[in-house]
Design a binder for these strands. Sequence first.
DNA 1: CGTCAGCTTGATTACTTTCAATTGTTGTGG
DNA 2: CCACAACAATTGAAAGTAATCAAGCTGACG
Lengths: 238, 238
Amino acid sequence: MQIKRLCYDIPPCEHCTNTSNLFCSLTKNEKAYIGKSKKSNFYKKGQVIFYEGNHANGLFCIYRGKVKLSKLGENGKNQIIRFAKEGEVLGYRALLSNDPYHATAVAMEECCVCLLSKEHFMELLRKNFSLAWDAIQLLTRDLKNAEQHLIDVAQKTVRERICETLVLLKNTFDYDEGTTTISAALTRSEIADIAGTTTETVIRTLAILNREKLIEFDGKKIIILNLSKLLFEAGIHD
Amino acid sequence: MQIKRLCYDIPPCEHCTNTSNLFCSLTKNEKAYIGKSKKSNFYKKGQVIFYEGNHANGLFCIYRGKVKLSKLGENGKNQIIRFAKEGEVLGYRALLSNDPYHATAVAMEECCVCLLSKEHFMELLRKNFSLAWDAIQLLTRDLKNAEQHLIDVAQKTVRERICETLVLLKNTFDYDEGTTTISAALTRSEIADIAGTTTETVIRTLAILNREKLIEFDGKKIIILNLSKLLFEAGIHD
DNA sequence: CGTCAGCTTGATTACTTTCAATTGTTGTGG
DNA sequence: CCACAACAATTGAAAGTAATCAAGCTGACG
């Protein structure tokens, strides 16, 4: 039972070994303060951590696991906005702008997520410039990514977008130890929801990329055989 | 000569009548501080205020005029990211993340833009929580818009996107006094760069919308005849 | 008055989606 | 452990949508 294993050993925030991108510049005391009313929750694959449109009452910090953030279009179609993994925070945007959550967060695998109280977080934010600064850095990063993603979707062909999605998955989740197998196993329909296309087109395109020896399949997982060619095909020429 | 008229009367920041979305919570003294080394510049239609990729050495604050922010895709095609008008700031994202400008800013008409020194801004930011807070609010707003725009481009048809673009233009620039004529005159190719399509398709679609009595043309400008139907066609059902 | 940029229209082509049908996989309860 | 249900992947054919290419038009401006 993987869930049992996860239950062990969730340290208090001040001893958390995750290098959180939001709390990295806090002192031990500050971390302890923010974690005062920490609640750790477990989610199985597919379970929802929060729903788009619902009231935001806390900050989620991923202790273990991968999470996908998605948003519904007017027509009911899902669009995956971004991913988050160990050490990353969720829902900070909603807290900062005092809006409802703008996206739905779903566990992609067994997850352990800590919920930090809105009050403690906001309190510390007011007093601590470096926390506000880190929040700004996070926002600028997300904004940059969102704008880049926008241009990609608007201008690239489906094939390019799918190649780029594979690169994104590799960068976000890394390879399985010692291989070039992307460590996250997504469904074709999830890949479609990132690239902004349909399941069928993803299947056909992946089959072509496979025939072209750019990728290979290992069960549900995807092995990258030729990363540089994939980058080229994705229209990424840096 | 409109440019001559604009030259008159640019007040120091502490007496600026624009309700800036970034400086609204500053005191007079703080505004004076930030405006210490203010330089006001004039741009004619089509002139570039800053280029994507160039080093960011100051904060631009629009005193008069409208500006478009665009970004190049890998294939060289332009994508208009957003617009800005009187009172809005440009380039704050680059300053905050210490990156180069991520977009190119072009004057859409006669503009007067004040350049505030990076040092004074950053200095005040460090000392003044309410300024940092306003920056956070601005970032969350832009992020929300970017994500919404992403979903629109990814999921809507060209027709929906063009309808939505017209609504966006109306919301951003308002009508000409006492009419339903969108006050900004964009080229078809600019509209295409917002909606993520081609000039020809914009022309064809606008012609159809015209035939359907949703819009009308007044020279280069577009008159909205039926806003609620346009909203519906844009897939905006709030 | 010529030129240049923007606008318009038509015809063709390419790409993607949609629909439909089939097979494969996984997890659950009897 | 098997049967079954639910979900995921696959394949093919048909339909639609928008991009591309090519050509002519219009209006502003030096």
